[in-house]
Simulated assay, not measured.
Amino acid sequence: MRAFSVCVTGVLALASLVSCSGQGTSEPTEDSGKIRHATAAVAFALDSPGAITHLPELVPAGATAKITSSSGGGRSTVTLEVSGLLADRHYGAHAHTKPCGLAATGSGPHFQHQKDPMSPSVDPAYANPQNEIWLDFTTDAQGRASATSTVDWEFTDEAHPASIVVHANHTATEPGKAGTAGDRAACVSVDF
């Protein structure tokens, strides 16, 4: 049985909400010709590749996320808002190259503006918050948090992320571990 999917603009709905990917839009601007917008509002489920929890002990089924993105004019900004997670806990979160899959690794590596020739990328020259979208957060006593990343480059039709992955830990920055943040706890597909 497939999960029921609903998209809501401007409101984070909770009833049977599973995935809202595919909400990318573009509009003309004076600066660069296009501004790309994306919005996804989801509730995580155990078996929905569009908004899946891989570790329900860290991201319970039914926890919610809202992702908004705007890219154009030489900049990109992505905001992640979550609720229903564990209280007072550190999480990592990054933009990834592929949509979510049922397997935790299905979302591919981190999306990088300048791609590291080595994989996995753990070199701080590439795995850093200026070259990737990092959205690390710490939840409050109610399990809510938000994070925003702004970078000085744009998503394009040829090069844009396809998901946001929530990780078990904040992101490491030291050489040999840069960009790592523990297990992939949950994933949201987003049409950036």
Rank of each mutant, 00 (worst) to 15 (best):
T29L: 12
D31N: 02
S32L: 07
G33M: 11
G33Q: 10
K34I: 12
K34R: 15
K34A: 13
I35S: 12
R36T: 08
R36C: 02
A38E: 01
A38Y: 04
T39E: 13
T39H: 08
A40K: 00
A40D: 06
A41D: 14
A43L: 11
A43Q: 12
F44I: 05
F44V: 04
F44G: 02
A45V: 02
D47I: 10
S48K: 05
P49M: 07
A51I: 04
A51N: 06
A51Q: 06
A51M: 05
T53Q: 04
T53N: 03
H54K: 13
H54F: 15
L55H: 08
L55V: 13
E57Y: 07
L58N: 02
V59W: 03
P60G: 06
P60F: 06
A61L: 07
A61S: 14
G62S: 13
T64Q: 15
A65S: 08
K66D: 02
K66M: 11
K66S: 11
I67M: 01
I67C: 07
S70C: 02
S70N: 07
S70Q: 12
S71D: 09
G72C: 09
G72D: 06
G74Y: 05
G74Q: 04
G74H: 03
R75D: 09
R75Q: 14
T77K: 10
T77A: 13
V78M: 11
V78L: 12
V78Y: 01
T79R: 11
T79Q: 10
L80T: 00
E81C: 03
E81P: 00
E81T: 14
E81F: 03
S83I: 05
G84F: 03
G84R: 01
L86F: 00
D88L: 09
D88C: 01
H90M: 09
H90C: 01
Y91S: 04
Y91I: 02
G92W: 04
G92I: 04
A95I: 05
A95Y: 04
H96W: 06
H96E: 09
T97M: 15
T97G: 10
T97C: 12
K98F: 14
K98N: 14
C100A: 06
G101H: 02
G101S: 05
A104V: 08
A104H: 05
T105H: 13
T105W: 13
G106A: 15
G108F: 08
P109Q: 09
H110G: 13
H110S: 14
Q112S: 07
Q112W: 03
Q112I: 04
Q112R: 13
Q112E: 15
Q114D: 15
K115G: 00
K115F: 07
D116Q: 09
P117E: 07
P117N: 07
P117Q: 08
